[in-house]
């Protein structure tokens, strides 16, 4: 009886050894799979709301396009417009119990840049291409502020909007949080680019 038990234990040990050998690649594969699609890692404080819904901040920023305004070519007209939406809400004299206005997103260019670098929603070649195009756009702004460009502010605004569209179209499906943060910062970033002093500070 004892001998049979010994044989049984011996068989069990071998089976366990085989099972361990078979399980090893599975465990390794699981580890690889866990490392792959971790897109949520770059979405820190994803809103509790449905991420598929379009970001509410996108709409207010759209009317600020200077296309409809017959602004002179050299006037950095759109920059102050970014501040327009805030005063009306405050001047209405809303009761204290009313819902407080949504906190204006503070622009953290460095953080946005880092998040764009880190996001897995955009491939490496696309990131390099975007960077090339952003650099070209910055060159155009620099030339404009130095009075060397033939472009008007309206042209620059159009190029800026196009660039935003490109970035957002790459992000919106897989990194919704970053896409909405960029949409929220759109006017603030434009303010930095359109204002010669702020732009110079940005470059320095």
């Amino acid at each position: 009886m004892q001998h049979e038990a010994g044989i049984w234990v011996h068989h069990m040990n071998r089976r366990i050894a085989y099972a361990a050998v078979l399980m090893l690649p599975l465990l390794l594969g699981a580890g690889c799979a866990r490392g792959k699609p971790d897109t949520s890692a770059s979405e820190p404080e994803a809103a509790a709301t449905d991420p598929r819904t379009p970001p509410p901040a996108a709409k207010p920023s759209v009317p600020a396009t200077p296309r409809s305004t017959p602004a002179p070519a050299r006037a950095p007209a759109p920059a102050p417009r970014a501040k327009d939406p805030a005063p009306p809400a405050a001047s209405k004299g809303a009761p204290a119990t009313a819902k407080p206005p949504a906190a204006a997103p503070t622009l953290d260019l460095t953080a946005l840049k880092e998040r764009l670098k880190d996001t897995k929603a955009i491939g490496i070649f696309s990131k390099i291409t975007l960077k090339n195009q952003v650099d070209d756009l910055l060159d155009q702004f620099r030339a404009y502020h130095q009075g060397k460009a033939k472009l008007t502010m309206i042209d620059l605004r159009r190029s800026y909007e196009l660039m935003m569209m490109k970035v957002l179209s790459l992000l919106q499906d897989e990194d919704q949080a970053l896409a909405s943060d960029i949409v929220s910062s759109r006017e603030a970033i434009w303010g930095l680019l359109a204002d010669p002093k702020k732009f110079a500070a940005l470059q320095g």
Binding site: L26, G29, I122, G123, I124, F125, S126, T129, K166
Partner: peptide, 28 residues
């Protein structure tokens, strides 16, 4: 089993590259 796991990983990389190049061409 390892081979079965490695092949899809390579295929996924291939798909990611195709997607990236699609985006690059569109960006241009």
């Amino acid at each position: 089993v390892t081979a079965f796991l490695v092949v899809p990983s390579s295929a996924q990389n291939d798909e990611a590259l195709k997607k990236d190049l699609t985006a690059v061409i569109a960006l241009h």
